[in-house]
């Protein structure tokens, strides 16, 4: 799961990309001293990677975020630091890409560097989201993102959830849909992610790597 140098997380907005990317980076940092995460979200001004900056930095992760992230300005400017990550080969890098085809546009800026590197492009799916709740809609979303990013999705992530009320049954239902997409598009399933209580034995039996999530992006009353 952590073999690639560059790990890019794309998907529909609200699929849980950011939580998955943040948790992925935290796990990665346990194995690799040099880990970086890039908040490449130029779409969503709220609830983003930079919200988890303290947790990430305490674990020695280098956080690169747009200068104006979480301020009152919504200027989608990408920091120049991102370019150095393609030179510093000693780093493992996680990219949290913005939602949908609009968000994926930002990653196309680095297309040439990415294809020459050792990379994985994950597509994060929550089948409980209305725009990705059947195989056709998921495929359409994948094609839109691929076209916008100029890159092919190489791995699918099952992040099916209803937040705190998620059960393993929800994840299994999602798995069925995602397996269908995986077969039709010939893209492997990379891993399944979810909160600890939902990743029970029935999920473990599926035989895919699991990423246990901890909630890092919080609301004011949480």
């Amino acid at each position: 799961m952590f073999s690639r140098r560059i790990n890019i997380f794309a998907g529909h907005f609200g699929s849980g990309k950011t939580e998955v990317a943040v948790n992925f980076a935290l796990k990665l940092s346990k194995e690799y001293k040099n880990t970086a995460i890039v908040d490449l979200d130029i779409v969503n001004p709220y609830f983003r990677t930079v919200d988890a900056r303290d947790d990430l930095e305490q674990n020695g992760i280098w956080v690169i975020a747009p200068v104006y992230a979480n301020t009152n300005v919504d200027v989608p400017a990408l920091p120049a630091e991102i370019n150095t990550l393609f030179e510093k080969k000693e780093y493992k890098v996680v990219f949290d890409v913005g939602g949908d085809d609009l968000g994926a546009k930002a990653v196309s800026r680095y297309k040439d560097e990415i294809v020459q590197d050792d990379y994985e492009i994950y597509f994060v799916i929550n089948t409980k989201r209305p725009m990705t709740n059947n195989a056709d809609r998921i495929k359409e979303m994948i094609w839109e993102i691929e076209e916008s990013a100029g890159l092919k999705i190489t791995s699918l992530v099952n992040n099916t959830n209803l937040l705190g009320s998620t059960t393993s049954k929800d994840i299994l239902e999602g798995h069925e849909l995602i397996e269908q997409v995986s077969l039709e598009l010939n893209i492997p399933i990379g891993f399944i992610s979810g909160m600890k209580n939902a990743l029970d034995q029935s999920i473990q039996q599926l035989g895919f790597p699991l990423l246990q999530l901890e909630k890092h992006i919080k609301l004011p009353w949480e």
Partner: peptide, 13 residues
């Protein structure tokens, strides 16, 4: 049906 949605999406739906 139970879904996970953003406030803005729910308004439109």
């Amino acid at each position: 049906e139970k879904l996970l949605m953003k406030g803005n999406e729910v308004i439109a739906e």
